[in-house]
Design a protein around this nucleic acid. Structure first.
Length: 559
DNA sequence: GACTCCACTTAGAAGAGCAAAG
DNA sequence: CTTTGCTCTTCTAAGTGGAGTC
């Protein structure tokens, strides 16, 4: 259906933009705000002062209590110091940032308390920046850029036990930036007095600008927003590949079941890994460089300490207990009954190994993906996550929702289906800090509404009695009373549904699956079938991103 | 195959904005 | 009008997987 517009690999013909937006220069501390070392006031050089501010700004954060963070910060900070400062400042514990910290908090507070007019002025200034830098021209379409602002300097905030947390993230200069645009287009002008590192015209990639970041040495890109045509088409393709898996999955499953008994060790490991990826929606688990990031794993990089085998657990046989840290150091904990063949294989894979050894020592994501792509063009490990997420949503929606339900109930069903996927994919969030309180508040509101309902009912009854006894009273009054009861009931139900939803959602993040794993056409079709406006399940951003699906999907769409 | 580099998607946290409650 | 609580948006880290090289 989608036409191949360009020859292989070409992403655009014309790409024109104004280059990235740079964060403001560092503003030196005012004279009345001081840094102290060992109780003595010390005037820092500008180069050393800026990192001191970064640290002071984070003083309320748990990061600054962690040894690794403090050590990394201190090492990098000392690099920025003058010789004299370095000689003096030798112990972070003797550094006193309280005045800088207080200044920062006051600034935040002041920003919050700006007048309406000042806030509006700020907003307008911001909009001007967006207008100038936030859009580009790609093949005659004006497109929103996703991240047109260069990341400001600061202290690196890695997730989990990151060995590099606290390191100084350096300020990016135009001299670090590679610009990508079409040859004929007007080339973005660097900030005055500066030059770009390079200007290139590579239409086989989609980025507009890039730079190399100093913590891991990886490349960062400026790219289009998710609502752009380019990203939308890619998204559509992703779901089409996942849909294609539907036609292959039965055979693939049969095959890995057979492979569980293969004579070849590598084949058996591949079969077990695929069993996990398919059944549990685990990530592939690429190799990682040790010491460069937190110790996290995916399927292929599982180590034997990450699973425990239980021949019998509670009333179940052959249970595998998973306990490991996945992407973003989110814990994956799950007890899963598996088939006997998988269990026996795992036992064998673990034999003669010790803590730290890989479970699948003959396997890599590369070989696994090679195998997968031989089974179906375009198939890789992550396609299973997309496929299983989307098919689960579709099946759950079918199971949970009724056309006769009211809107609130329908939306609850949708959220529950969404939640089933989020659980499958292990998308978690920290429970909101105010959770307990706001839950209690909601309960109080429900109780109040219950009383109100009782009152409304009593009044209705009273009115009825009056009509009966006198017969002449205004029938409108009776109708009104009845309507009040109905309204009350509906509101109560709505609140109760809301409470259920909230409780079940405490630690689950729905957004990630909604945005990245669930074919939007399933949701759009569901909305059409259930007569629920699409705005009820997708906010503005989501509707923009999924515009392609909202446009093309009919009620009879099947994933 | 192992190693490196690169480009792109996926991820939760934090910050901003906004609406309802007080 | 101010405060509170929630949703939406922004931010950027952390994954996946392809390609090139040896």
């Amino acid at each position: 259906q989608k036409k191949e517009k360009y020859e292989d690999g070409v992403k655009w013909r014309i790409l024109e933009h104004n280059g990235p937006y740079f964060p403001p220069e560092y503003q030196p501390l005012p004279d009345n705000v001081n840094f102290y070392y060992n109780g003595e006031k010390v005037k820092l050089s500008l180069a050393a002062e800026e990192p001191a501010l970064f640290f002071a700004q984070m003083l309320d954060h748990e990061y600054t209590t962690k040894k690794v963070f403090r050590d990394n910060f201190f090492t990098d900070w000392r690099e920025e110091m003058s010789h004299k400062e370095r000689t003096l400042i030798k112990d972070l514990d003797k550094c006193d940032f309280t005045e800088i910290h207080a200044m920062h908090k006051a600034k935040v507070e002041a920003r919050k308390n700006l007048s309406k007019e000042e806030k509006l002025a700020l907003k307008e200034a911001n909009q001007k920046i967006v207008d100038e830098y936030g859009y580009c021209l790609l093949d005659r379409h004006k497109e929103r850029i996703g991240n047109f602002k260069i990341e400001p300097p600061g202290l690196f905030r890695g997730r989990g036990e990151h060995p590099k947390q606290g390191m100084l993230k350096k300020r990016i200069q135009p001299e670090d930036i590679i610009i990508n645009c079409s040859k004929e287009s007007s080339i973005p002008v660097p900030p005055s007095g500066h030059k770009w590192k390079e200007v290139r015209h590579d239409n086989t990639v989609t980025w507009l600008a890039s730079w190399t970041e100093n913590i891991q040495g990886s490349i960062k890109y400026i790219m289009l927003n998710a609502n752009s045509k380019l990203k939308g088409e890619k998204d559509w393709e992703k779901y089409e590949v996942a849909r294609k898996l539907k036609d292959f999955v039965d055979n693939i499953r049969k095959q890995y079941m057979t492979d569980l008994g293969s004579r070849e060790m590598k084949k058996r490991q591949g079969a077990v890994a695929l069993y996990f990826i398919d059944k549990l929606a685990l990530r592939a688990g690429n190799e990682k460089e040790e010491g460069e990031s937190a110790d996290t794993v995916g399927c292929c990089s599982l180590r034997i300490e990450h699973i425990t085998l239980h021949k019998q657990l509670d009333d179940k046989e052959y249970v595998v207990e998973f306990d490991f840290l996945g992407k973003d150091s989110i814990r994956y904990y799950n007890k899963v009954p598996v088939i006997k063949k998988v269990f026996k294989n795992l036992k064998l894979f673990m034999k003669n190994k010790q803590t730290g050894d890989e479970l699948f020592d003959r396997l890599s994501t590369i070989s696994l993906n090679k195998h997968l792509s031989s089974l179906m063009p375009g198939l890789t490990a992550k396609v299973f996550r997309t496929y299983n997420a989307s098919i689960t949503l579709q099946q759950q929606l079918k199971e949970l929702s009724n056309k006769s339900d009211n809107e609130a109930e329908k939306i609850l069903s949708y959220n529950r289906a969404n939640r089933a996927v989020a659980v499958l994919c292990n998308h978690q969030r920290a429970p909101p800090k105010t959770f307990e309180q706001s839950m209690a508040n909601l309960q109080a509101k429900i109780d109040a509404r219950k009383e109100q309902l009782a009152e409304a009912k009593a009044q209705f009854k009273e009115a009825k009695k009056e009509v009966k006894s006198r017969g002449d009273s205004d029938p409108n009054v009776l109708e009104k009373k009845q309507a009040a009861v109905a309204r009350c009931k509906e509101q109560l139900l709505k609140m109760e549904v809301q409470a259920t939803d909230k409780e079940e959602n405490k630690q689950i993040a729905l957004g990630t699956s909604k945005l990245n794993y669930l074919d939007p056409r399933i949701s759009v079709a569901w909305c059409k079938n259930m007569e629920v406006p699409v705005e009820k399940i997708y906010n503005k951003t989501q509707r923009d991103k999924f515009a392609w699906a909202i446009d093309m999907t009919e009620a009879d769409f099947v994933f």
